[in-house]
Design a protein around this nucleic acid. Structure first.
Lengths: 253, 253
DNA sequence: CGGACTCTTGAAATTATTCAATCGGGGTGG
DNA sequence: CCACCCCGATTGAATAATTTCAAGAGTCCG
């Protein structure tokens, strides 16, 4: 398969493989709500990195939950300028907003090999029609998404590049931590410097230099698709990271 | 009253003054839905510019709809750095997301004298519990909010400053146009250059220079709190503005 | 081995910020 | 009533941050 192609489902998996335990942002649902939602899943798929799950404007009839891996959402203009406007970690609904809206304003791209759970809109619609509490819970999950967007605007508009990249890393660390995918030594982050540049609104060359500064400044280093903390507290400090926008305290942990 | 103080309700108005006709984003509701929502309004208020409607973290029991004026939402950190992460125009629900979430991750500030309609969460909750279609419609309105956030991330991350400021102006023009508040000559925009700087992630000094470039480049000028088009098409061009992210085509006009 | 992609570094050019100063209008206190 | 003050707008000059252009090294893969 040619590199960078808009590839393709690798393999379909039995939806029974979907964890019965909540993980990540799914902790916002009660145990009963997750059981209800989980039952509505029609399919599990494994997707290859580089594949495009859906494109801006395309009519949608299903939404997906990320079970494992990393997915990005990108806004692009005609000139091919691309900005990553969101990154999804396990436990996130990637495009639940496609259900009320019908189509998306951005592309959805698989950043690293991912397992996704597919939900047909008609079944989700029935769930929320029948259960106003569940509707509010799912609504709230999309609203946290929006809160993260706001934080990204703040990060892009007001933080200097070192703080900006550090802040991005802290967010991913914190969100991955919600599903046990981060520990005191660091976390897996299989992104290229190009991806980081897309997410942080700078050029790849500049990302490279700032990562060196973070490394030489004793904050963290990135090697082999993994962030290694050198001084985690210092990193959070230089990032000016305050996780309150993630609304984690209101999770049902 | 001291200048810049966190002031104050000017006057309460009879909720009967709330228009029976839909305006702006409210066109996304059906006529019947708007009648239902409108009935749930408990109060109309006029607020002075500079007053803070609500602050990050503060528990909320009501949400507001902007009827007239301009309202900004700001994210700030401890160091006092402030970024405007959203601007609200008439017809927008300013903090509907406060209902499912309970508190906000940002401040809500009145940018110019505004009329707001107040809705108690308990009444909104009852509306959405009783009417799944209305719930989805309100949900979708908050999702368009998120789509605008994504566009702001794109704008901040990928557009050069002139395109960035122009793009901001085009967005406000388009959104104000939905309630007849913009015409071929321009539109009222009672913001300071400082506000523009907050919204576009640059310094006020730089905003000033770029506004001069826009003026001398024959795009638009800002005088007396009003944007005057010199060449509206050229402005939209230099802004690389594509309004699809506003989901206007799916309005019930 | 060739090709594609990623990471890395240097140097020059460009963009944006910072610091400093001026100007004008609107409102305030004397 | 008027001098004063604050704020917003404006400009210049020096400094700092970032991009652009160019080149080279390492790696993976067919």
């Amino acid at each position: 398969m040619p590199h960078g192609a808009a590839a393709a489902l690798i393999v379909a998996v039995d939806p029974g493989e979907l964890p019965t335990e909540r993980f990540g942002m799914l902790h916002r649902l009660t145990v009963a709500q997750w059981a209800t939602v989980r039952d509505a899943c029609c399919e599990l798929r494994v997707m290859a990195p580089g594949s495009v799950f859906s494109r801006k404007g395309q009519p949608l009839s299903e939404s997906i939950l990320l079970v494992d891996g990393l997915i990005g959402r990108h806004v692009a203009n005609r000139r091919g300028q691309r900005e990553m406007v969101a990154i999804e970690v396990p436990g996130d609904f990637v495009d639940l907003h496609g259900m009320p809206l019908g189509h998306l304003d951005h592309d959805v791209t698989v950043l690293s090999e991912s397992v996704i759970a597919v939900f047909r809109h008609e079944r989700l619609k029935k769930l929320v029609d029948d259960d106003p509490e569940l509707a509010i819970a799912l609504w709230a999950m999309t609203l946290i998404d929006a809160a993260v967007h706001r934080h990204w605007s703040f990060r892009l508009g007001r933080l200097a590049t070192m703080a900006r990249i550090a802040n991005f890393l802290c967010e991913v660390d914190t969100r991955l931590g919600l599903s046990g995918r981060s520990d005191a030594s660091g976390f897996a982050l299989p992104l290229t410097q190009n991806d980081l540049a897309d997410a942080c609104g700078v050029t790849p060359v500049h990302v490279n230099r700032v990562l060196r500064d973070l490394r030489e400044g004793g904050y963290c280093s990135i090697r082999d698709g993994r962030v290694h903390f050198i001084d985690r507290d210092a990193l959070y400090q230089v990032a000016e990271f305050d996780p309150s926008y993630l609304y984690i305290s209101s999770y049902d942990l």
